[in-house]
Design a binder for these strands. Structure first.
Lengths: 327, 327
DNA sequence: CTGAAAGCGCTTACAG
DNA sequence: CTGAAAGCGCTTACAG
C-alpha cells in the first residue's frame, strides 16, 4: 500500500496539516519541523496521491490534447511542443486522436463522457461555426471558423505568406507560381493567397492568374501537378501552400531536370522535419509551435475566470531561408 | 458546480448507492428504478468525477506513454497505435517525452514524482540492464537489454530481417548489401544482421564481408554512404536497417542514375509513412504497432497480479512488398 | 506556527 | 433489490 500523509504525520509526530504544508512548500513552517517532516517523507518514500488532491481542489493539472492523427507530421510536432510547454508549467498532457471525425470532435468540445482534465486543446477539422463548447475550457488550434465564439490560437497566415513571396521577389523572382490554390484547409488557403497577392501588389508586380495553380496539399499531388504544369509554363519561383507539397515540387523538378534554386526557387510552409533534410534543403515558413502551445495553455488557464472573453490569438512565425531559394 | 451522484439521488428519490449501480450498469436494479434514475441522470447532465472514482478504487484508467520524441516518425506512429489500443479498453493515455535522457527515463522507471497512472509504457533508449523499476507497473518497448528483469515487448528482428533478405534472394538477387551494419540501436543491429546471414546461409549464398556496410540509420548518412559505395561496388540488392536509411538509398541511386528496382532492389525496415509515398514506393518490414500496443497494455494489466513473472513478448511483423523490389 | 476536523464524490461491505 | 454509512488521501477554513 502506498504511503499517505497521515503515515508520514504519525512517523514525524506532527499533524497531517503540517505534512501538507511541507509537501506544498508553504511558508509558515519552522525550519526544525520542516527538516523533521522532510526526513520522514524521505524515509517512508511518500508520493502525493494525485487523485485525492484533484478531488479536493477540483483542479487536475492535466490538459487534453486532441489532434486528428499523430501520423500527420505536423500534429506530431505540435504534440511535442504542447508536451514541452505543459511540462514547463507542471502540467501533464493526455492525448486523444479524433481521426478528424466530427462526432469525436463534438464529444470533446462538449466535454466527453468524463471529467478528467482541466481543459481541451484541439486541432479540430470538422467543427462548424455554430458548434458550442460545454462547461469545461476549450481552445481550438489551427484554422478558425470566422464568427466562432470559442477561444482560438492561429498563425498569421496572410503575413507569413506575404513574407515568403516577398523573399522570392527580393531575390529577383518575378513569375511566382502559387501551388495549392483552391484546395486545402479553406481559411488558410484564402489567407495565404491574400498574402501572395499583397506581396505582388506591394512590389508592383502584376498578378498572372495562370500562376494560381490548384492542387491538393500533398507530395504526390504536387509532384504530378508541377510536372504537368511545366509542360506549358515556366515560373521562376514557386510558393507551395505547405511543405508536403513543396517537397513534391522538388521531386518533380529534379526529375524534370530543372535546377533548384538556379532555375526556380521554391518556398514551402510548415517547416516539417523533412524540409531541412531534403536535397536541396527547403526554404519555408515555420509556425512557432512553442508559441502556439504556450498561447493555448494560457487561454485554457484564463478560461477559469468568470469574466473571460473568448479570444483569438496569433502565434508567431519565422521565414527559414534554406538552399531552395538561395542563389 | 458539477452534478454529483447525491444530486441525482435526491432528484430521483433513491439512494446514492442505486445511482451508482445504474451508472456502473450493475445487474440488480429493477427496470423501473433504472429508468427513473436514468431520466434524472439525463435531466441533470450527470458526468462521473474521475478523481473521486480513482481515489476510491485506486485504479486510474490511465497509462503513461513515454517516448524520446514525437518528432521521430516511428514514435509518433507508435503513439497513434497505443492511443487506439487504449481506447478500445476504455483507457486514456498520458504522454511524456524523455528526449532520450537517462535521468528522465530513470525517473519514469522508478515512478516519477507523482502517482497519476496505472503504469508506464516506455521506449527507453538510455536505460541499462541493471536499472530497476519502482513499485508501479512498467513495460519497456523496443530494444531490450538482455538480462533485464523488466517486462518488455519487442519485435522479431532476426526473423523479420531474414524474411526481407529471403525475399530479395527469391526475386533473383545475389549480391545483397546490408546497410547500417555496426551502427544504430545495438541489439536490433545484431539481430537484423543475424537474420541477414541466416537468409544467405539457408539459400546457400556465400557472405561477402564487403557487402556489410557501416552507416548511421538516417536518410542523409545513407545517401552519402551509398553514393560513395557505388563508386567501387555493384550490389543488386540492398537491405537497409530502417526506412529512413532506405529512403536515402533511393535518393542516392536515383541521383546516380541507377534504376530501382530494375538494377537494384531495395528493402527497408519500419514502414514509416513516407515509404508508401516515395518514388518508387519502398518495400519494407512493418512491425505491427497495434500488436505492440496491445501486448504492452496486456502486460501492464497483468502486473497488478502478485505472482506476475516478468516477461518478454514478441509482436508480429509483415513484409510489405512494394515497387522498390518488384521486377 | 500547528492541530483537529470537515468534506471533495465516489464505491462497496454491511444490513435488511 | 435498495439504504445508510464508512472511507479512499488530500486541502483548508477554523481555532488556538
Amino acid at each position: 500500500m502506498a504511503v499517505s500523509m497521515s503515515d508520514v504525520a504519525r512517523h514525524a509526530g506532527v499533524s497531517q496539516r503540517t505534512v501538507s504544508n511541507v509537501v506544498n512548500n508553504y511558508v509558515h513552517v519552522s525550519p526544525a519541523t520542516r527538516a523533521r517532516v522532510q526526513a520522514s517523507l524521505d524515509a517512508l518514500g511518500y508520493r502525493p496521491n494525485t487523485a485525492a488532491r484533484r478531488l479536493r481542489t477540483g483542479r487536475t493539472g492535466t490538459v487534453t490534447l486532441a489532434v486528428p492523427s499523430f501520423r500527420e507530421r505536423y500534429f506530431a510536432d505540435l504534440a511535442e511542443a504542447v508536451v514541452g510547454a505543459a511540462r514547463d508549467r507542471g502540467t501533464t498532457v493526455l492525448v486523444e486522436t479524433t481521426g478528424g471525425h466530427r462526432d469525436t470532435e463534438l464529444a470533446l468540445l462538449r466535454g466527453g463522457g468524463d471529467v478528467l482534465t482541466d481543459g481541451v486543446i484541439m486541432s479540430a477539422v470538422a467543427l462548424g461555426r455554430d458548434d458550442q463548447r460545454g462547461a469545461h475550457p476549450v481552445v481550438l488550434i489551427g484554422d478558425r471558423e470566422p464568427g466562432s465564439t470559442i477561444d482560438h490560437v492561429g498563425i498569421k497566415n496572410r503575413e507569413a505568406a506575404q513574407a515568403a513571396v516577398t523573399h522570392l521577389l527580393e531575390t529577383g523572382r518575378r513569375r511566382i507560381l502559387l501551388l495549392g490554390a483552391n484546395h486545402g484547409p479553406k481559411r488558410s488557403y484564402q489567407l495565404r493567397r491574400q498574402g501572395y497577392q499583397a506581396a505582388l501588389k506591394k512590389h508592383g508586380t502584376a498578378l498572372d492568374p495562370d500562376l494560381l495553380v490548384a492542387c491538393d496539399w500533398t507530395t504526390t499531388a504536387a509532384a504530378a501537378t508541377i510536372t504537368r504544369t511545366f509542360e506549358h509554363l515556366r515560373p521562376d519561383g514557386i510558393f507551395a501552400m505547405n511543405d508536403s507539397a513543396a517537397l513534391g515540387v522538388l521531386q518533380a523538378l529534379h526529375r524534370g531536370g530543372v535546377d533548384v534554386p538556379k532555375d526556380v526557387s521554391v518556398v514551402g510552409f510548415d517547416d516539417i522535419v523533412e524540409s531541412s533534410l531534403s536535397t536541396p534543403t527547403l526554404s519555408t515558413v515555420a509556425p512557432l509551435l512553442g508559441d502556439i502551445a504556450a498561447s493555448a495553455l494560457d487561454l485554457l488557464a484564463e478560461q477559469v475566470d468568470e469574466d473571460h472573453v473568448p479570444q483569438h490569438r496569433m502565434a508567431g512565425y519565422e521565414l527559414r531561408i534554406r538552399e531552395s531559394s538561395t542563389r
